[in-house]
Design a protein around this nucleic acid. Structure first.
Lengths: 269, 269
DNA sequence: CCGATTTATGCATGTTTATGCATGTTTATG
DNA sequence: CATAAACATGCATAAACATGCATAAATCGG
C-alpha cells in the first residue's frame, strides 16, 4: 500500500465501506501502515461529515436505518423496474426528453443509462434529484406550485415555464386507461398540464403497468390517438389494446420473456 | 527536465494530475528542479482557477472534490442538525419563507415543525421533496437549469420565477465566510441568484457551521451588513463575529451547551 | 536606450497540519 | 464485575505551508 494523502485515504476508506459494508480500525491501520489513532481520527471526521456511522471497532455505511429518502422514494417493484428499463431504451441520445411526475416515470429516470447524453426536463423534484446523479444529463426543472398528490409542479407558472421548451420526446404519466384507450388524471391542474406537454412534444410515450387498465380517474388527459406509444406489461387483455392499435398507437410489451398473469399482483403506485 | 515557462509547467502538472490522479509538491519540485515554494504557488493558482483541488502535500483532480449530491445528501451530522433545529425556530407562522439550495438549508427544512403553516419557496429539488412531507407547508418550486454542484436551479429562468415572489424571510446558503463577514459562493450564477433573493427578502438569515469560517469561495454574495441574522455554532472565534455585530447583524449561537473545536472538521458543503 | 514596473523565483520566518505516542477513560463481553 | 480492547485527549514533532522580502529577469514607456 503506497503512501496516500489524507483525502485519498479517506476516499479509499469510503470505497471499502461501500464495497464491504463495514471497515475495521485495526485492519485499516495495518493496510495503510499508519497508527490506529490516525484511522480513528479519519473515521471521526468522516462520521462528522455524515459519510459513515462510527461504531466501536470501526465504521458502518450511513445507509443503515436513517436513509430517509430512499425509503421515502420507495424502491420500485421488480415489475415496474422491468417496464422502466424497456421504456428508457426509447430515449435517443442528444435529445430533449420530458419526464412527467409519477412513480413510473421516476423508475424510468432511474433506469436512464449512465452513458446517455440528453437534456431532461421535469416538473418533479424526485425525478430531478435522480437525474442529477447521472453525470451526462442536463436537468431542467419546471417550477411552480407543488401539488403533493401529483408530486410535481402544475398550474400557470409551470405551463409558462414549459412554453419555451419543445421536447423531442415525453413520458406522460397516467392514473388510469379507459376502455377506449384514453388517459385520465386525479387532478384538474395535472390533467391540464399533461395535455399542454403532450401537445408540445414531438413524440408522446405513456408507460403504464397493467393495473392502470383497471383504474379510472375523473379528468381526461388524452384520447387513444393523441399519444404515439404505450409501454406496458404482458398479460393485458388484447381487447383493451385493440382500440389503441386502431388509433395508430405503437404498443410495446416489456419483458416478454416471462410475466405470467396471476391476478394477485399488488398495485405499487 | 528542461526549463519550462510557468504556463508550460502548470500544463504539465495538470497533465500528470489527470494521468496519475494526484501530484506531490516534493516530487514535482525535484523533477522540475525548482523550489517547493514555487510548486506550491503553482498549485495554489491552479486551485484558485478551479483546475485542481489543493490538499496537504500536493493536489488532487477537481472531479473528486465536486462529488455532488450523494455525499451532500448524506445524513446531516449531529452538529448540523442542532444548528438547523435552532434556525427553524426563526420561521414565523403563516409567512413566506425561501430556502436556498445547500445541505445546511436542507437540514433546516427537515427541522421544520409539523404544525407550522407556511408557504415555502425553494430552488432545490431535495429541499422541495423534504418539504412535501410536511402536510401544512405549501411548496413553491423555483425552476430553471439545475446546477449539480449547487444542487438547485439558478440562472435567468430561476430569477424570472422569483421575480413574482417577495419572501418574508429567506435562508441563504454560503460556501464560506470571509474575515469581514462577507458571504461567498463557488459558482457565479449561484452567487448572482443568492444576491437577487437576498435583495427581495424582508429578512435574510444565514445558517453556517463553524467550518464555513475557514473556507473561502471565489464569488462574493453579500457583505456583513446585507444580511440580518447569522445562526452558527459555539466555538467560532469572537474576532470573526465582531465585524458582523458592528454591521448590525444578529448572531445566534445554536446549542450552547457543548461543541468542541477540533480544528479537523472538513467542509462537506 | 534607460529608468520604472511587473513577474518569477528563492530564501527566511513564523504558522498550520498530520501523525504518533503517552495517559486516562469508555465500551463490550465473558 | 473484571478485563482487554477500543477510545479520546493532550502533547511533541517534523513536514508542509503562508507570507514577506530580496533579487534577477522580463516588460514597458518614453
Amino acid at each position: 500500500m503506497t503512501d496516500l494523502m489524507v483525502q485519498e485515504r479517506q476516499a479509499e476508506i469510503l470505497r471499502r465501506l461501500k464495497q464491504d459494508g463495514r471497515v475495521l480500525s485495526a485492519s485499516l491501520a495495518a493496510e495503510f501502515r499508519i497508527s490506529e489513532d490516525t484511522i480513528r481520527r479519519d473515521l471521526r471526521d468522516m462520521a462528522n461529515a455524515g459519510l459513515c456511522e462510527r461504531v466501536y471497532g470501526g465504521a458502518l455505511p450511513v445507509s443503515r436505518g436513517a436513509t430517509t429518502l430512499s425509503q421515502r422514494m420507495g424502491v420500485a417493484s421488480e415489475r415496474k423496474k422491468a417496464l422502466a428499463a424497456t421504456a428508457s431504451t426509447l430515449i435517443p441520445p442528444r435529445c430533449t426528453v420530458y419526464f412527467d411526475a409519477g412513480s413510473t416515470n421516476l423508475a424510468i429516470a432511474e433506469a436512464v443509462h449512465e452513458d446517455l447524453v440528453v437534456t431532461a426536463v421535469t416538473n418533479s423534484p424526485a425525478i430531478a434529484l435522480v437525474l442529477t446523479e447521472k453525470p451526462l444529463v442536463e436537468v431542467i426543472l419546471i417550477g411552480g406550485s407543488l401539488d403533493r398528490v401529483v408530486g410535481g409542479a402544475v398550474g400557470a407558472r409551470a405551463i409558462e415555464a414549459m412554453s419555451v421548451i419543445r421536447p423531442d420526446i415525453c413520458f406522460i404519466g397516467t392514473c388510469g386507461i379507459d376502455v377506449d384507450g384514453g388517459l385520465s388524471a386525479f387532478r384538474l391542474e395535472d390533467a391540464a398540464f399533461k395535455q399542454y406537454i403532450a401537445a408540445r412534444s414531438r413524440r408522446v410515450i405513456v408507460a403504464a403497468t397493467r393495473e392502470k387498465f383497471d383504474a379510472a380517474a375523473p379528468y381526461a388527459v388524452a384520447a387513444a390517438g393523441q399519444y404515439h406509444c404505450l409501454v406496458t406489461e404482458p398479460g393485458v387483455d388484447p381487447h383493451r389494446l385493440a382500440p389503441l392499435r386502431e388509433a395508430g398507437c405503437e404498443i410495446i410489451e416489456a419483458g416478454l420473456q416471462e410475466g405470467r398473469k396471476t391476478g394477485r399482483d399488488q398495485n405499487n403506485d
